[in-house]
Simulated assay, not measured.
Amino acid sequence: MTKIFTAELIGTFILVFFGCGAAVIAGADGTSGIGLTGIALAFGLAIVAAAYGLGAISGAHLNPAVSLGVLLAGRMTTASFVTYVIAQVLGAIAGAAVLWIVASGSAGFGGGLGSNGYGPGYLGEYSLVAALVFEAVMTFLFVTVILGATGPGASAGFAGLAIGLTLAAIHLVGIKVTGVSVNPARSIGPALFEGGRALAQLWVFILAPLAGAALAGILHRNGLTRAD
């Protein structure tokens, strides 16, 4: 389990640093930065990198919601689930910490680390209901794709690409809604450093993704979304 713990910690670090770093360092301004499309691709490519670099060790869940879906699908034990989640949260915190150190070295750093949010003043200013629905539904779809891409009958060697592209597509649709979490660990890391509103709204990005992932795992376990 030590190797699995290490792989999940490093993999989640990659996801947070690359994804949130793209937003914080490379910028969301399409005229001088990479824009929303670039940020979406950064999250997707981070998953691809971690999946092919570390997936053979741990499966590269990198996400407590994914691990919950795998648990409820009957593919891992509760003890393993706890180990995965601890590693993922610590990896996300480490990724956010390094990002803060790097970003704060700029005179223009405003303190943001790509945290998730909703409501007045946050990107598209979507409502709480919109945020909850978006995060739950997108996590359900994301975990369903993961369980299918790594299950019986799936094309060998293509899971990482399918999962990464799915995450990129989710970001293309939803960055302006919530910044896109679909991953409690990814939300916890930046929120701990930003504090304030990001921390106050964190419950949304823990509860909604876990609910969507749970449904995906249950449906898969009952054969409704399983190839066999």
Rank of each mutant, 00 (worst) to 15 (best):
A168F: 08
L36M: 13
V24G: 00
A198V: 09
A28R: 11
I39C: 08
A46W: 00
V85K: 02
Y52K: 04
G38K: 10
Y118A: 05
A103W: 02
A94N: 06
S104M: 14
F18W: 11
A46I: 00
A26I: 12
A136L: 07
T144E: 13
V98M: 13
G195T: 12
I175N: 02
A185L: 01
E8R: 01
V98A: 15
L99E: 14
G95I: 06
L141W: 05
L99F: 13
A56P: 00
I10T: 02
T144D: 15
A208S: 13
V66G: 00
L71K: 06
A23Q: 07
G111P: 04
A131D: 04
L68D: 04
G160L: 03
I34V: 15
G19M: 06
L215G: 10
G59H: 01
A50C: 06
A198F: 14
G117N: 04
G212W: 01
G69V: 10
A103P: 07
I14G: 00
A191M: 09
G53I: 11
G74H: 12
I14L: 14
G151H: 02
A168Q: 03
T178P: 02
L172R: 15
G44T: 04
L202W: 04
E125G: 05
A97H: 14
L147G: 00
F142N: 06
V102H: 10
D29W: 04
A169N: 10
A168C: 14
I25S: 12
G195I: 06
L123K: 09
N183T: 02
A56F: 02
L128M: 13
L165V: 15
A50S: 04
G38P: 03
T144K: 11
Y126F: 10
Y126N: 08
F134A: 14
T178K: 01
A92Y: 00
D29K: 03
A87Y: 06
G112C: 05
F13A: 04
G164T: 00
V24H: 03
Y122D: 11
F205N: 05
V204M: 04
I25D: 05
F5S: 08
L9G: 04
F193A: 01
S67R: 05
L72I: 07
L36Y: 03
G53E: 09
A65I: 13
A23V: 05
A60T: 05
W203V: 15
G95H: 08
T178V: 10
R197V: 12
A92V: 02
V48P: 06
W203H: 14
G196M: 06
A131T: 12
V70H: 05
I25R: 09
M76T: 12
G69M: 06
G59C: 12
F5E: 12
L192K: 09
G124I: 03
V133E: 08
